[in-house]
Design a protein around this nucleic acid. Structure first.
Lengths: 142, 142
DNA sequence: TTTAATTGATACCAATATAGTATCAGTTAA
DNA sequence: TTAACTGATACTATATTGGTATCAATTAAA
């Protein structure tokens, strides 16, 4: 069971790259080569993030992408929702057979609890936090 | 993002059915019809659970499946691992580009933390617990 | 002893999700 | 004018998920 797909994985890395050079336009090409992300794949992810107002773009020569939203406001939960859909433990929990016949579904109760735990854990992790951790790790090892 | 697939979902329901009638052999057919699980699909899941020593079977007329392992010892984590593979937040975290070049990967650190949180949450939920919750819920509403 | 109800094993299929590629038009700095 | 860019979108390959079908072997019961 894989929690993060490549979509989300690549998006996180691209955002870290942009957040590290805040205020600058960085081309998809340079992000792709530097972070080993398939170019065309990355471009789709970037466009998706534009639509969600996480980043902005500039066309033409010297164009590229730039951070728009505050990195501390971008959570992994948000990225998962964009690229993998809202976190839901099981869709079955809302089907008639289990929940419709009873006032309360016991599974549903557990599931909702876990769902909120998972979401809140991922919400603690923001691009801003990851970037700071990354930078301090680099200071130590480089 | 769906945490539990149908595999795991159906398996949980089937185990609840068996745990509720501990010591009896229940046919796949009756479980399938009573819990609205596709028959042949269910049979595959049951066979998989036999291989993992969660249940046992008896062939022939009056045959069926019976609980083997203590329901309190069967966690949702275990079922997820059987039917969806071990919980891992992202396979990318172990690739060279991010982790190989540095002594420690910052993403990996966060990822491992969340991974353990998710796993421990699912470990709290056992078939035994779900069954007791289910039975007490039934007493109230039926 | 025959039969019908059952599991064991396995092959197959369809739909969806995931991962990645390709193309072409439009924009813009140099 | 041109080359470096993004915007938009279509396409392909592979894996995963969900489900079906088939046939052999077993066994309780008529």
């Amino acid at each position: 069971m894989k929690v993060l797909t490549k979509n989300t994985d690549y998006a996180i890395r691209a955002l870290l790259a942009l957040a590290a050079k805040k205020g600058c336009f960085i081309s998809a090409k340079s992000i792709a080569t530097e972070h080993d992300i398939p170019y065309q794949f990355l471009r789709r992810l970037l466009q998706e993030m534009i639509r969600h107002n996480l980043i902005v773009s500039k066309e033409g020569v010297q164009g590229g992408f730039m951070m728009e939203k505050d990195p501390d406001e971008i959570t992994v939960t948000e990225l998962i929702e964009i690229f993998q859909g809202k976190v839901q433990v099981s869709e079955c929990m809302f089907r008639k057979q289990i929940c419709g016949n009873r006032a309360r579904c016991v599974l549903r109760h557990e599931i909702m609890r876990i769902e909120s735990v998972v979401q809140s854990e991922f919400e603690k992790v923001t691009i801003g936090k990851l970037l700071r951790d990354l930078e301090s790790a680099n200071q130590v090892t480089q």
